[in-house]
Amino acid sequence: MNLFPCTLVYVDVDASPGPNSRNRDPLSYVSQAICLNNSLRQVGMPRLTIMTNAPALVAQRLESMAPERRPALMTLKATIELPKNTSFYAAHFKLDLMDQMADSLPADTMLLLLDADMVALLPLAPDLIERCAEAGLGAFDISDQVFPPYGSERVVADLEIVADRRLRNPRWYGGEFLLATPAALRRLVPCARASYARYIAEIERLRHHGDEAFISAALNVLADEGQGLIEVGAYQAVGRHWPGNNYRDVRWFRCCSFVHLPGGKALLEKEARFADFVPDRFWRHMRVAHLRGRVRHALKRIARLLSVERLVTLSACALRSAKS
């Protein structure tokens, strides 16, 4: 089974930037995609295809690169409409991307849909690819990262509102990784279109906005109906890393095939300036960013503790004044 690595770069200068993006350059995601493509080449995987609604602008950003090093380009046929101030606005158009790929991929090729702010450190294991090909779908279950901070009842409620049914085993899937056969995509896309329509209709009631909400709902519905689905995170196909977060030991990520860095976009854009991706250099920079993040987290905790102590002191003073 062949792989078709693909990422979405949706350009709209009037739309709100992603919540995790600090770079206001609308083409900053192209730089991240260059880094991703370089890392794919480094591990011997097929080159990345950038699907975009602005191919001429993206091509201009790539023209300084040698042709053999450039990502490929495809034009996205965007069909969905939603308010431009919606959180994760651009990511919603992954639904159009999947729809387009369902009808254009050869039967022996799987879509490997990746976010641009990722790097490949190792090739995907052949056994995992085979299992996903047999099942039809491979997705990244991040329920353990989403349920605790937001509350499992609230997350499940959002999923079931969008799915319009009670789900047997509700799971939340990360939008950064999807592995799908064309046949499975042709089942997923209509289900996701229906979920998207309910998502838009109920968006004011939902706590969670973005492609993960309606794609996760659709994946849950398909799983309940018997669709095979491999959870790729258990195989360390992908890990999501935030600088300073100690959800996992940082060394765990070095054994992942892909690392997603939603809080490390600037690091990826710097890496894109190099002609080749060097894992040791990237890892060194990632560790430094991680340690800086740990320091920031520690300083924030100290600041919160000092604020609490100050409030307690002020309250005690006010109480003594009142008694006197």
Rank of each mutant, 00 (worst) to 15 (best):
L159I: 02
L229D: 09
F214K: 02
A217K: 05
R131V: 03
Y196W: 14
V156D: 00
P126D: 05
G226K: 04
E204V: 11
G210I: 04
R154T: 07
S143C: 05
A223V: 12
G138Y: 04
L178R: 00
L185I: 02
E202F: 12
R186N: 13
R251I: 14
A135G: 02
A218P: 01
M118P: 04
P182H: 03
E231G: 07
T181D: 04
G151F: 04
P190A: 03
S152L: 11
R205E: 10
G233Q: 09
Q227I: 06
L113F: 12
M118S: 06
I200C: 13
C191P: 03
V238S: 12
L111K: 08
A201G: 03
E231Y: 13
V189H: 09
N246Y: 10
P126W: 07
D211C: 10
D249K: 11
N220L: 07
Q236F: 13
W252F: 15
L122Q: 15
L179R: 07
L229F: 05
G233N: 04
L121W: 08
V221G: 11
M118Y: 10
Y235F: 15
D249V: 14
R198T: 11
V119W: 10
Q227E: 10
A125Q: 14
E212P: 06
E231D: 15
R198E: 00
I230F: 05
Y247G: 14
P149M: 08
D141C: 03
V189Y: 06
P148D: 06
R240W: 13
G233R: 11
P123N: 01
R154H: 11
D115T: 10
T181K: 05
L112M: 15
V162K: 05
S152P: 11
V162W: 06
L188Y: 02
L124W: 08
L222S: 00
I161P: 00
A218G: 01
D117R: 10
S216D: 00
E212H: 08
V221F: 10
V221R: 15
L178W: 01
L222R: 00
R207A: 14
L112E: 08
G228D: 07
V221N: 11
H209Y: 05
V119E: 12
L112S: 07
D158Q: 01
A218N: 05
R198K: 07
S216R: 02
G226T: 03
Y173F: 15
V232D: 05
D127T: 12
Q227L: 02
A217P: 04
V189M: 11
I203N: 13
A183S: 14
L185K: 00
A139D: 10
D164E: 13
W252G: 12
C191L: 11
P123F: 01
R187Q: 15
E202S: 13
G175K: 10
L206C: 01
I230W: 00
F140E: 12
F177R: 06
R248S: 14
L167R: 03
L159E: 00
C191D: 01
L188F: 02
D224M: 04
L178H: 06
A180V: 09
A133D: 10
L114M: 11
R205C: 04
Y196G: 04
L124K: 07
F140G: 10
D158R: 06
L229Q: 05
R131N: 07
V250P: 10
V156Q: 09
D224E: 06
F177K: 08
V146R: 09
V119K: 12
W242N: 12
E204K: 13
A184H: 02
L185V: 04
S195M: 14
E130S: 14
D144M: 09
A180N: 03
G244C: 08
